[in-house]
């Protein structure tokens, strides 16, 4: 698996939200995209998933340009996203939410139980709540459900849009631990979008810094953690 975004431009009407960014995600890596509000992080992930059309540039998945492929086919080839705000189906139970994560694989019914067990072992809390409706879960539980649901399709690459948003510090630790575990033990490649730069940079292998639709910095995550400019702008601990 190798995901490569080449000189991507994306518009909302006449407004150019993504102004030519290039990002590479290699097999087995955790890559993080950090940046302030409105930098274009969500738009980038939506475009990779096929929810926004590409104006110019390419999205290569294992060398093949997928920018013309419809969104559901991208899930089939192994790109799964946990969207910003989690995207839980509120009127469905926890179990139904998980099952629908495997929707397109009706030929793989036999995998269902195995994958449910896999998700429950990562998130034991979900197992206790299989029949509770998704809309009544706490924020942290919803995030667990959203990640578990995305894993049901056995993705090759998992796109995570601000998984720590709105969570208490304990839960943030918990979620990031699990993301690391998914990467290490399941071998799933991860593209992580975060505002919580501290956590993201500690967990990631490489990082890109986005500002108003452009990549302004690209480096090993550990280097960015010690970069004074990044510390000042995103970690709130710069020298004053």
């Amino acid at each position: 698996m190798r995901l490569e975004i080449k000189d991507l431009h994306v518009f909302y009407g006449k407004i150019e939200a993504i102004k030519g960014i290039s990002v590479v995600v290699n097999q087995g890596e955790i890559v993080t995209l950090i940046g302030a509000n409105g930098a274009g992080k969500t738009t980038t992930l939506k475009t990779i998933s096929g929810l926004r059309p590409v104006s110019s540039g390419a999205i290569l998945f294992d060398g093949q340009d997928i920018s013309g492929m419809s969104a559901h086919q991208r899930v089939e080839i192994g790109i799964s996203q946990v969207p910003e705000g989690r995207g839980i189906f509120p009127g469905m139970s926890v179990l139904e939410n998980l099952e629908i994560g495997k929707y397109f694989r009706k030929d793989r019914k036999s995998e269902m139980q195995e994958d449910l067990e896999k998700v429950y072992s990562l998130f034991p809390r979900l197992k206790e709540r299989t029949s509770q409706s998704g809309g009544t879960l706490s924020g942290g539980e919803q995030q667990m459900l959203a990640i578990g649901r995305a894993l049901m399709s056995r993705p090759k690459v998992l796109l995570l849009d601000e998984p720590s948003m709105g969570l208490a510090p304990m839960m943030i630790q918990n979620i990031f631990n699990i993301i690391t575990e998914i990467n290490k033990s399941l071998g799933t490649t991860i593209l992580l979008v975060e505002q919580n730069a501290q956590q993201a940079l500690q967990r990631a292998d490489r990082a890109y810094v986005l500002e108003t639709g452009k990549v302004v910095k690209e480096a090993k995550a550990s280097d960015l953690l010690n970069d004074p400019a990044v510390r000042e702008a995103y970690l709130g601990t710069g020298a004053h």
Partner: peptide, 15 residues
């Protein structure tokens, strides 16, 4: 039902 709750999230499920 998934589509009627959210078109975008339904697409992300491979629907």
């Amino acid at each position: 039902r998934a589509v009627s709750m959210s078109e975008e999230n339904a697409k992300l499920m491979g629907i």
